[in-house]
């Protein structure tokens, strides 16, 4: 369980998160929506300590991210998939995936490689194990990014606009994989602009506005006229994104 309590985050004078409370239970799939600059990425980055929190608390399965030794354990539990993939360009695809399992989890090279091959196979990249990231298309890179995240056997997957850098066709192939993951019971926190995708995979939708959670509702309620849509800010956001009723 991820418990975020009264989370504040400032960058110097700029207050980006203004008291966020959010609890994510195992097997939940949560989509975080909100306008640009509302603090979605920052919130996600606070969960695994990529940003230092200013005040409040973030606790993952009882581990406090502000404590250095506990942060490491948190990072082993939470794997992130990045918008720009952020693969290691000097390593082959297979090595990108086995790096953390071998270095951090102490998995043997053989076991890690076998698992990585199986993962690549499962996302349709069985033949790309030995190429470098530069030889892949964006959609393929992101599928490798997903494999890299899954390879560490995470309890939570954090996704930050993982399809924003992809064209529609590639977006579809990546979303398909994530949908299957959600169905398999993976706990996921996904920042996204893909409203339809959010609607399809999430149990809950969290709407962030100017550093505050405007609403945190079960998906069906969020999209109903007397639920989230009742708030003009959300209605406006959704109509701008080309969805909603």
């Amino acid at each position: 369980m991820i418990e975020i309590k009264d989370l504040h985050k400032n960058f110097d004078d700029l207050e980006v998160l203004k008291g966020v409370d959010l609890t994510i239970r195992p097997a939940e799939v949560i989509s975080i929506l909100g306008g640009s600059g509302s603090g979605k990425s920052t919130m996600l980055r606070c969960i695994n300590g990529l940003e230092e929190i200013s005040s409040g608390s973030v606790v993952v399965d009882g581990l406090d991210v502000t404590k250095k030794d506990e942060l490491k354990a948190v990072r082993k539990k939470c794997a992130t998939v990045f918008q720009q993939f952020d693969l290691y360009p000097h390593l082959k695809v297979i090595e990108n995936i086995t790096l953390a399992p071998v270095q951090v989890l102490g998995v043997s090279k053989t076991d890690a490689t076998n698992k990585a091959r199986a993962l690549l196979e499962s996302v349709g990249l069985g033949d790309k194990a030995d190429v470098y990231p530069a030889q892949l298309s964006g959609g393929q890179k992101q599928r490798v990014g997903i494999c890299r995240a899954l390879a560490v056997g995470p309890d939570y997957i954090l996704l930050d606009e993982v399809t924003s850098s992809l064209d529609p066709e590639m977006t579809a192939e990546v979303l398909e994989i994530l949908k299957n993951l959600a169905n398999d019971g993976m706990t996921m926190i996904s920042v996204t602009h893909e409203i339809e995708f959010a609607r399809e995979i999430s149990n809950r939708i969290v709407f962030l506005d100017q550093g505050k959670i405007l609403c945190d509702l079960p998906t069906a309620d969020f999209f109903s006229a007397d639920g989230g849509m009742a708030d003009p800010r959300i209605a406006k956001f959704l109509s701008k994104m080309g969805t909603g009723s």
Partner: peptide
Amino acid sequence: DKKQLEAARSFAMSEWQILKLIIYPQSLA
């Protein structure tokens, strides 16, 4: 590209591992 270092950090790699396995080979090249 510094973002890949952040990715490595997010996977719980230590600063020393990041230096040795990611920064060193790429900066040497």
